[in-house]
Simulated assay, not measured.
Amino acid sequence: MPLEIDSLELSNGRITCFLNGSLDSNTAQDFDQRILELIGPNTKTVVLDLKDLKYISSAGLRSFAKLRRQLTGRGGQAVFVNLSPQVEKVFDIVKAIPLREVFSSTAEMDNYLKNVQENV
């Protein structure tokens, strides 16, 4: 199954990417390349909406880890919202993504980010 990536530029250095399909060894390189094209020097937050992601393999998890390292290195972050049940199960088993970066909805994520910024 191919991977589709739709993005939406938001204000304050935040980009939301909607993933649809499979993120595996066949599509991870495309994901990595597309993300590099999307994030600019002012991008601080990449929101990955995984509601329509049907499958993720270890290659997909590596792509997420690479993105997280890249953003953390410049003071940014990657966050994950609306995980499909099957992807949520993989995240739970592997424990590759810290829970503070996984949200059940965009509203929950926005509330968390607002609280973080108010406490700085």
Score class of each variant (00 low, 15 high):
I5R: 00
G21C: 09
D30M: 07
A96G: 11
T16I: 15
N42E: 14
G60Y: 01
N111D: 07
D110T: 06
Q86C: 10
Q33P: 00
Q33V: 13
Q86R: 14
G13E: 11
F91G: 02
Q86D: 14
I5E: 04
F103C: 11
L36I: 02
D110I: 04
I5P: 00
N26Q: 08
L23K: 04
Y112C: 10
F91W: 10
G40D: 15
L8M: 11
L8Y: 09
K114I: 03
S57P: 01
V87G: 06
N20G: 04
D24S: 08
L19E: 03
L3N: 08
S105V: 02
L67H: 05
E4Y: 13
L3G: 08
L10W: 09
D24T: 08
I97F: 07
N82E: 14
P41S: 13
S58G: 09
F91N: 06
L83S: 06
Q70E: 14
D6F: 14
V87L: 06
S25G: 12
S7E: 12
L19Q: 09
S84P: 08
F64S: 03
R62I: 12
L3Y: 05
F64A: 07
D52K: 13
L113R: 05
S22G: 11
Y112K: 06
K66S: 15
L99H: 12
L67V: 15
L23G: 04
S84L: 12
K44G: 08
L38C: 11
N20L: 12
N115R: 07
V116R: 04
R100D: 15
V102W: 00
S11N: 15
K114C: 03
V81I: 15
I97D: 12
E4N: 15
L50V: 03
S7D: 13
K44L: 13
G40W: 02
V102L: 04
L71V: 14
A107N: 03
T43G: 01
R69F: 10
S25M: 11
S22A: 15
L3R: 02
L48G: 05
L83H: 01
K114W: 00
R14F: 07
N119G: 04
L8W: 01
N20T: 14
Y112M: 06
K44S: 11
L36C: 06
L23S: 02
I39N: 05
I39D: 05
L83D: 00
V120H: 11
L48A: 15
T27V: 01
A59K: 04
L50R: 08
F64R: 07
G76N: 10
V46W: 02
E4D: 14
S25H: 08
R69D: 11
F18Y: 14
